[in-house]
């Protein structure tokens, strides 16, 4: 297809959400290797100085997004102030992102505080997913991050999370057995 580049550009523009390589291959009936090449070309074209839009890989797909440096201008379009995530919310989100699947008791043990309210907020903002129930007494819910979480922070996938300093992990069973309690009782 000679105009594959134009077609893909239009697809991504119109779709608005991150479109995966598989989906693009379905839609264009083109070879994935060719599509990848086209996307690499487009990405480069849009990353030239003087452009306001970037083509980025997000949440397992490709998406046109505004250039971050233009944020002060684009905020003028916002009708209302967007509620920022609080320190407590970010902290909880970080724990879930790196330790998923994780239960509320584990989160509370790690944070040292009740986290029910924060979890509710995060669920309402669609940043979390309930992954199931843990097979221990009480069958507590297991939390993980959602696809929207990746989109919000512009991450390709969970491997794209910033790497943290390594250290010896806590025994999660300890958290389950004694939430918010010292272990030596």
């Amino acid at each position: 297809m000679s105009d594959l580049k134009a077609v893909i550009e239009a697809f991504l523009f119109v779709a608005g959400f991150p479109v995966s390589l598989d989906k693009l291959a379905d839609l264009t009936e083109a070879d994935k290797a060719d599509i990848k090449e086209v996307i690499a070309g487009l990405t480069q074209e849009y990353s030239r100085p003087g452009r306001g839009i970037r083509l980025l890989e997000v949440a397992g797909g490709y998406q046109f997004r505004s250039d971050p440096t233009l944020a002060p201008w684009l905020r003028r379009l916002q009708k209302e102030r967007v509620q920022r995530l609080s320190a407590a919310a970010l902290e909880t989100l970080a724990i879930i992102a790196y330790r998923q699947p994780v239960t509320r008791a584990e989160i509370e043990y790690l944070r040292g505080v009740d986290s029910g309210g924060v979890l509710k907020t995060l669920l309402e903002r669609h940043l979390l997913r309930i992954l199931g129930k843990k097979d221990i007494p009480g069958r507590p819910l297991l939390y993980g991050t959602s696809r929207y979480f990746l989109e919000l922070f512009g991450l390709k996938d969970l491997n794209d999370l910033p790497t943290l300093k390594e250290f010896s992990a806590l025994d999660p069973e300890l958290a389950e057995a004694l939430p918010l309690e010292p272990s030596d009782q």
């Binding site: 320190a87 970010l90 902290e91 989100l93 970080a94 724990i95 992102a97 790196y98 790690l110 944070r111 922070f153 910033p162 943290l164 300093k165 250290f167």
Partner: peptide, 9 residues
């Protein structure tokens, strides 16, 4: 560690 992660986020 998670506090730092939150700041990174």
């Amino acid at each position: 560690r998670y506090k730092q992660a939150a700041q990174l986020f």
